[in-house]
Structure formats: C-alpha cells, structure tokens
Amino acid sequence: MDTVLSLKHVSKKIKGRPIIKDISFTVKKGQIYGFLGPNGAGKTMTLRMIVGLIRPTSGTVEICGHNTRKDFVSAMSNVGCIIENPELYEYLSGMDNLELLRKMEPEIPKSRIDEVVDLVGLTHRIQDKVGTYSLGMKQRLGIAQALMKKPELLILDEPTNGLDPAGIKEFRSLVKSLSKDQGMTIFISSHLLSEIQMICDEVAIILHGKIIKTSKVEDLSTGQKITWQVTDVPQALKLLKDDFGIEAVKDTDETLSAFTDDFRLTAINTAMMSSEIGLKYVSRQQKSLEDLFMELTGGETIG
C-alpha cells in the first residue's frame, strides 16, 4: 500500500457548529508528514478522528486502505499514537503499563517491551510507578507504547511539548532514524513552523478547521524574509516587481521586505546595486508562522 493515511472530505459538527470543514489530504508510505496550524485550528480534533476517538460527521478516514469506521481493528493495528498528553496509569509502573497494553495485542512478543524501553532510554526507571515520572519521562513512555507494535503509521500530537532543548534534539533524531531505518510513516502535528521544517517532508496546513495548503516543505519557500535598506524605496519596489516578479512590501521610508529564496537573492542584490536604488543593507529573518499565514491567506489573520 502506497498510501498509508488518507482523509477524504472529513467534517465534524459539534452541537450544530462546524468545527472541521471538509478536509482532505494523503500521506504516503515512508513520509514524515507534518500537520501545521495555530492552537485551536482543529489539529487535535482531526487527529482524534483519525484514531477513532471521535466520529466524523461526514467523510472517511482510511489507514493502509482500511476504513476506520467499517474496519476499525485492521486500520488501528497499523497505528501507534500519542494524543495530546501521554496519560498512562499512574498507579502502575512503566513496565506494568506496557505489559497491560501488550496484553491487548498479543501478537507483540514480550521481548519487544525491553527493546522499546531501551530505545527510549527508560530502562533504569521502568519499574517505578508512572506517578513518579517527570514530564519528559512520561513523554518517553508515551513513545514507547506507541512503538511497541512496530506500526506502519506513527501519529504524534505536539510531541515536543514540554521537552527541553536536549529532549527536542533527541526526539528529532529518533524520528529521523525511525523513518530512515525502519521505513515508518510518521504524522506529526505542531504549531511550530520550525519544528515542521526541520523534520517533515510534506505538510498540511490547517486554519479555522480548513486545510489551506498542502505542499512539500521545501516548496513552502525557504521561509526567509529579506529586508533591504535602500534610499529609494519606490524604485526598489518597482525593480523587484518588474524584473523578478516579487511583490515586496514597504516597511518604512527606508526599508522594504519580501519573501524569497537564497538562489535569487544574489541576483536581486546584484541588480539593486547596479541600479541607483542605493542599497545600504540586506538582512534576513526566519519566516514566522504569522508571515506564512499572511502569505497564504492573503492577509487573513490567525485570530
């Protein structure tokens, strides 16, 4: 099966109000797919519908070709997931938790538990009650339970929430190795653009319950915002538009900015210097999510 996850016209109404409006996207095998959107956009709601915690009002979700409504068991046997916080049984030990879950899917061999505990680095605390774990440890245990069955599809909901930079780094390398070494398809939701950019291949962007764009991450434009400090701003604007087809924006009397990639920057700068625009300074900054949304929605704000 090439398509591991597909959503077709999925909608959800709660008490008559539409929360999720007709979203569709596809995730192919081996991809690390991002699900990007600000808080409240509907990411978690969508994720819950994928794993069967919530029923869509209309539309279908298919995992590895199995409809989650009609064939829940076959669909979910390919899935490992963490939805929101990784809550586990606090009064049981980490090992007991994993064992309990393993008993629900007896095809998983007992040895796998030790493997997965080792993988997330919890061997030294696995016998302690989960109530004594730190947030980071709970996250790790959450990943452990998701990976136990070596799923085709790993679904992670804001996985770096509450992790320190070291943890985030570890997480990133884990995800990359799972994808590269084990061919796992990974679906990650986040509100951090940088996260998505660093890990994912493709992304679907959701805002107010609607998918406003799906694209490869690299196509999202490098996410750079270039600011030129010039003497003649109108001239510069005209140059960018006529010669490069870039719609730049005047920021102040002396500066203007636009989104563009590295490759053309050289050419642009050269062109500016050759003309009488009076280029003084070029700077760039990371494109924020706000910027991206501005760009995509033509000015529509997040709120």
Partner: peptide, 10 residues
C-alpha cells in the same frame, strides 16, 4: 486520560 490509551488499540 487513560481512556485514550485503551481506545486507540486495535
């Protein structure tokens, strides 16, 4: 929240 754990099993 542990209900999520058991309901997302096959």
């Amino acid at each position: 929240g542990t209900v999520k754990l058991i309901l997302t099993r096959p």
